[in-house]
Nucleic acid binder design. Sequence first.
DNA 1: TATATTTGCACAATCGATTGTGCAAATTTT
DNA 2: AAAATTTGCACAATCGATTGTGCAAATATA
Lengths: 331, 331
Amino acid sequence: MTIKELAQELNMSTTTVSRVLTGQEKKYRISPKTALRVRDGARKHKFEPNQIARNLRLQETNTIGLIIPDISNPFFANLARTVEIELRRRDKMILLCDTKDETSLEKESLHLLLGRKVDGLLVAPVGKKYDHFIKDSKVPVVLIDRYFKDQTIPFVTTDNYQGAYSATKFLIQKGHQNITCIQGLGHTSVNENRILGYRKAMEDHKISNFIRISGAGYSIQNGYESTRELLQKRNRPTAIFALNNQIALGAMKAVKEAGLHIPGDVSLIAFDEQPYFELLSPALTAIQQPMQDIGKVAVETLFKLMTGETVKNQMLKPNFIERESVKSIES
Amino acid sequence: MTIKELAQELNMSTTTVSRVLTGQEKKYRISPKTALRVRDGARKHKFEPNQIARNLRLQETNTIGLIIPDISNPFFANLARTVEIELRRRDKMILLCDTKDETSLEKESLHLLLGRKVDGLLVAPVGKKYDHFIKDSKVPVVLIDRYFKDQTIPFVTTDNYQGAYSATKFLIQKGHQNITCIQGLGHTSVNENRILGYRKAMEDHKISNFIRISGAGYSIQNGYESTRELLQKRNRPTAIFALNNQIALGAMKAVKEAGLHIPGDVSLIAFDEQPYFELLSPALTAIQQPMQDIGKVAVETLFKLMTGETVKNQMLKPNFIERESVKSIES
DNA sequence: TATATTTGCACAATCGATTGTGCAAATTTT
DNA sequence: AAAATTTGCACAATCGATTGTGCAAATATA
């Protein structure tokens, strides 16, 4: 049923119906009696206004595009959940795009979402090339997790540098020197900052000669394969720093398959925290990101942007959780 | 830029521009020369047609609503990913709703999505009351995972009955009798069928006196609390059958905290498989659902529905993965 | 009673696309 | 050369809402 049909049914103009249903009765002096008739009629016929038509007319869709690299990665799944909750509270919906960490898909997603006239965009970008971001679309964008150093697009992320620094420092203080990092996607700010933190900690403790960075990709498989290679080396590291939860998982699997043990043969720290980490054997020492906060702050920032307020970038503090996956080495 | 502006720029009618850009030049006899001019102009001005306007006019949105109970549950996150991939291949996008397993939110989501005129709906329903599904909306719906026995809405799910039966049978054959089920949401088809399978296996082996069903909710917390209670009982079960991955996680946590061991003190089987299950201590014996297939088949089914084809319900076979969390009991 | 003001609602344009139909101009057929 | 076809494109309606403005009728004021 359309507003026109409803109006005919009630024997009045669409104007009046529309004004009542959008709560503008006072503003346009619709009499209480008429307003009541409209409401009753709408209820009776279960009239639901066509949002597409509203969107076209009002030039807003109440829809936010959410672009993330991998919804099956629990980090992003949790993020998506928080974002969903926050957006629903504000009467917005999510158009979801998963880029599989491929720039081409990200580009495509961006186009599709802009074509659909989303009111705002929340993006955890792949990060490689971002020409497609600069576009002249005036749609507000907030970057999540990953950002671009040389762009002014506002972002919300964890302080990855500090998280990585403290994790590395922790390893060093436990007596480790031969510490290898298994990285995610090399060109992402997240990865760069974690590497930077790792590097700085190594340098600060005069063991920069041990700096080694391995792998590529935020996947279980990368963690697995990189670790396999590492374990075969003559100069096998005494500790591995996995730059996200999936890599850590792959690393554990490889160690287990090699018949070795954590932390006996090799220590492990993971960036990211997951509920099952405490149940692994050994329980995984990890750097926890404030996922809820990231989602919440990102949505808040986006809304500020949409209402024209000025916003500032946010770097939220991570939390170090010590468990059992790091061995203390006597020197 | 709108099609009108582009048409003015090119000094021709919007009709012509539209027809060229939608590839109908031959059908409407637009001369090649004109077509070329249109394409060049569109490219030059980076014209992107307003999808909202198209949607209104064409009465289709190329958008599918995806309603799931919990995107942070890896089962649904994986499902979402498969669905995303399959839909993108077909040039559709996802409007995502997370119901938190609350009927009220499900109802709201349904309304919102119908108001936005989605072309189809993929729903893993909460399951409690489904009046809101029967509505006269002619939008094609396919149920995923959970379905309604007394409704004709097509569904795609795992054969939960069989999965639960074989898991229970496995426990029994390992010598267990005192087997307790920790369930999810009691009113969901998924839960009912798993319970049914469990029950039947117990009955078939003449130990229906041991049938016990505990808990409520597909959450880590439910698994945790239910298990804590179970462990304190005098007649503590020798085996626990956790009806999803989150419950299993909570159960493991409770067992660990109680200072007990799996499978030494109590055996555990989980419905659902997760990548980290093999890395837990002990590695978790589990029933694996064909998640990829579920998503794929669900999308296929929805598209058949949308094109008016007849569809049939699908029950996909689960896969039993034996690991180390079940102890063999000598009798 | 005549005029001014307020009340209550409807007309018609608009958002940006798509499309049935009509009508000249160009071309072909007789 | 006249008639019939074909070619190439534009007019205007349409999708379903929202909204600036206008205009009677009702009421208040002079």
